[in-house]
Design a protein around this nucleic acid. Structure first.
Lengths: 145, 145
DNA sequence: CCCCAAGAGTTGATACGTCAACTCTAGCCT
DNA sequence: AGGCTAGAGTTGACGTATCAACTCTTGGGG
């Protein structure tokens, strides 16, 4: 395991900086255009049908407790509703409200446009291929599940 | 401004997922090996000499208030100290404590090793070049300053 | 039938980032 | 000199992420 060279650090710093800028830019866009955070956006687009909390957490790759906290906040704003699961009246489920479904649609369009403008338009085909293959490798390596 | 195609979304989702995994992995490593967060690490390596808060904030590209909050927490743990600037007894400055300097060194080694193992070892030369040029383009585009 | 162990979900404590409002001081203007 | 303004720094409120501890229900053993 070799040491990090100055070039390695420069590469790393630049990448981290670009990442931070992109995330901040997109967060602000989503907040400005739709009034939601990126995390809330993820919930809106993932929750296409009624689900249990654990199922949603798995789909998002988040911890249950994070999902629970976020759902509490979103419920207060009328974007999601906690319901009963139906099957025997067992446990709680969650689903989008009408307002949540409406927001999911408009936010997808707005966020997509922001992504395209901020990130994808700056990307050549070669760069896209390199980044895709690297991303896939990283995901496999860190979280093979 | 074209719409996002399903391939665009797939590319985006994979990249975001890889990013999240990498950041989480490195954060945990730093916490486990050195007991500090990534933000604290950045302060430790940036604060090589006594500085003013605004100078540090500029060097890091962060908001002053974020720096101030973080310094408050780090001061409590004895990693940094708020001092007077000297020149005429004007304003407050900040500097690393002995403990902070020690941690800066060991954390740089530990964190560097984690970065190399987690990220750089998964990278070919071509991918590195593509990602570097893309990162630079993004930084120019979003934050030309 | 009663108890208890496991799984699902929630809650609380703590840490962090952001925004806006606030304090303090130095330099300037008259 | 008196007062105003600009810049530096801090603080508080709020939303958010993580971890651990907690509650509730269900299903199994005795």
């Amino acid at each position: 395991m070799a040491e990090m060279s100055p070039e390695d650090w420069a590469f790393w710093d630049t990448w981290m900086r670009a990442q931070r800028l992109v995330l901040r830019e997109l967060d602000r866009g989503l907040q400005r255009d739709c009034g939601i955070s990126k995390a809330e956006f993820s919930v809106l687009v993932t929750l296409r049908r009624p689900m249990r909390v654990g199922e949603l957490a798995d789909a998002l790759g988040w911890e249950k407790s994070r999902v629970s906290h976020l759902l509490t906040r979103m419920e207060k704003r009328g974007l999601v509703a906690r319901t009963e699961d139906g099957a025997g009246g067992r446990r709680t489920g969650i689903e989008l409200t009408t307002e949540g479904r409406r927001l999911a649609g408009s936010a997808t369009r707005a966020h997509g446009a922001n992504i395209r403008r901020t990130v994808l338009d700056a990307l050549t085909g070669e760069q896209a291929a390199a980044i895709r293959s690297w991303s896939e490798e990283l995901v496999d390596r860190i979280d093979p599940a």
